[in-house]
Amino acid sequence: MTTQPVVEIRGISKHFGEGLARVDALRDVSLDVFPGTVIGLRGPSGSGKSTLLNVIGCILEPNSGSMRLSGELVYDGKWLRPDLRSLRLEKIGFIFQSHNLLPFLNAWENVAVARTLAGANLAQAKERALELLTYLGVERRQDAMPGELSGGEAQRVAIARALANDPRIILADEPTAALDSQRAGKVMDLLRKVAAERDAAVIVVTHDEKIFDRFDQIHSLRDGVIEGTAENRRP
């Protein structure tokens, strides 16, 4: 494991509204996430975990603080890159609660689309997609449409899509919420495998206590503050 964190957050604050209506979603949050680790963000509704995920995903602009992704300072009181979408495309992979596969593309196309958006031609993108689907064990379902995939298969395809551009950061929003405990465990094992083998940092927002033992660290948020961190010791 390298000592340089992939996600480095310092004093990030985010509030919504002003005056009496002001809600502090994040208050002076600092966090380091290292490559090869899987960390969890937990907390009750409104605790700020989704806001934190959106800030790390460059979807939501914080009000103050600084953020470094893969060593690049991307926020320091303001966004330092004009095009945040290319930043996301290059550095971040997203995994969603309900997989969010594009219903009009089959499995390999859903993976390849992320690659083509980054500039690859279709042949290269397909080759990469098939490689990832094989890596995640769903290569036999490459031509299936999302509606024909089981929940577990769809989530694997979604993970493949998140990995299409070799991001160092993978953000997952309740990726196991729609799965039974057995499938949820398998998805988490996959994410652990991805983190370990691809030297990526995986940040997962979850409520699912059954998978807490799959994280290297779990940060508990309450009222916009990280109030505690639990570590799982690995052999």
Partner: peptide
């Protein structure tokens, strides 16, 4: 709507 949001999130530029 959801597909477009997903495309934007994964980095699709507006021209796409």
């Amino acid at each position: 709507k959801k597909s477009i949001a997903t495309l934007k999130l994964i980095g699709a530029p507006d021209r796409h």
